[in-house]
């Protein structure tokens, strides 16, 4: 069953410096996301990944095509859809004089939910930081906190925009574990990334975008079989990241 159905989705912007002409930031893409899967959108910077997510989240107007989440058209059910999705944005700043617990209560209130802050913070491994301010958190902690904020309404779909960009390997793997746990609990997860290893290890299916178009979509193994079937060079060794983790150990550093 599809929880998200996107058909010929289009986003146009006027060309910078030339108001008459426009370009398509997202150029008529079509894909479906199944209930309970982890779906990754990959692509270089400027490929249209974030714009696609922001249209689904209701942050940006849709200029063409359609998008349905849980059977609701995104264009005319903005508020109903906001109730059932959780969003983690690339920029994750908050009112800085509030502590984590107060911020979670605030976000809960915005959904008219009374929430158990301790449970939520425990889920993302931040129980000891209950009364810390966001600016006192490390990069990885900040990302985990913004996921906690996205979980206050127990969403059906969780959108993560480049959740591991800028994190050290320990924090990154820790976040992957969190995503897996949430997914095992039944949550559909849509994430963007340009980390190939992340896509390969986390996602059930992957869409690759470039210049606003969707150029490939399959399971990680399916994509490898189709586009990189020739073994480049058989290596039995790990890569430099494994070296880094072996030397600095796997425990989380924040």
């Amino acid at each position: 069953m599809n929880i998200i159905e996107v058909k010929n989705l289009l986003k146009t912007y006027p060309l910078p410096g030339n108001k008459k002409d426009s370009f398509n930031a997202v150029d008529g893409i079509t894909f479906n996301i199944r209930l309970g899967e982890v779906y990754g959108i990959l692509g270089p910077n400027g490929a249209g990944k974030t714009t696609t997510l922001e249209m689904l989240e209701g942050l940006k107007d849709i200029n063409g095509g359609s998008a349905l989440i849980d059977g609701l058209d995104v264009s005319n059910n903005a508020f109903k859809i906001k109730e059932i999705i959780g969003v983690q944005l690339q920029a994750n700043e908050y009112f800085e004089s509030l502590n984590l617990s107060e911020l979670l209560i605030l976000f809960g209130k915005l959904y008219s939910n009374e929430i158990n802050t301790k449970n939520l913070l425990e889920k993302v491994g931040l129980l000891t930081k209950e009364s810390a301010k966001p600016k006192e958190l490390s990069g990885g902690q900040k990302q985990r906190f913004s996921i906690a904020c996205a979980l206050v309404n127990n969403p059906k779909v969780l959108f993560l925009d480049e959740p591991t960009t800028g994190l050290d390997p320990q924090a990154k793997r820790n976040l992957w574990n969190l995503v897996r746990e949430l997914n095992v609990g039944g949550m559909t997860i849509v994430l963007t990334t340009h980390n190939m290893e992340e896509a390969e290890s986390l996602c059930d299916r992957i869409a690759i975008m470039d210049k606003g178009k969707l150029i490939a979509e399959d399971t990680p193994q399916g994509l490898i079989d189709e586009y990189a079937s020739e073994p480049i060079q058989e290596t039995l060794k790990g890569n430099l990241e494994d070296v880094f983790l072996a030397l600095t150990d796997h425990r989380l550093r924040d």
Binding site: G58, L89, Y94, F107
Partner: peptide, 14 residues
């Protein structure tokens, strides 16, 4: 500037 409005906007606040 700090993206707080955007974060609020993705919640069902009017």
């Amino acid at each position: 500037r700090r993206g707080i409005l955007k974060r609020l906007f993705v919640t069902p606040i009017k």
